[in-house]
């Protein structure tokens, strides 16, 4: 086990800003991509539905 406590884990040997700044950015990017994938699918299906109705 590398960490004696959770606070040691978050501190990352004093480099928490750089480590969590990296992983946080990845998390934000992934969430943003998933949201945009869903929105694009939704509007494509809406267009298909409207086409289907008319």
């Amino acid at each position: 086990m590398n960490w004696e406590s959770w606070s040691a884990f978050w501190d990352m040997g004093g480099r928490g800003f750089f480590v969590w700044g990296s992983y946080g950015a990845l998390l934000i990017a992934v969430i943003a991509e998933l949201v945009s994938l869903r929105q694009a699918r939704k509007s494509a299906l809406q267009a298909l539905q409207e086409d289907h109705d008319s």
Partner: peptide, 19 residues
């Protein structure tokens, strides 16, 4: 984060390389 050891030269910041 829990198995790989601390890097002797870089300390903990090396864990950024996993992404």
């Amino acid at each position: 984060f829990f198995v790989a050891p601390t890097d002797a030269q870089q300390g903990e910041v090396y864990r950024v390389i996993f992404i």
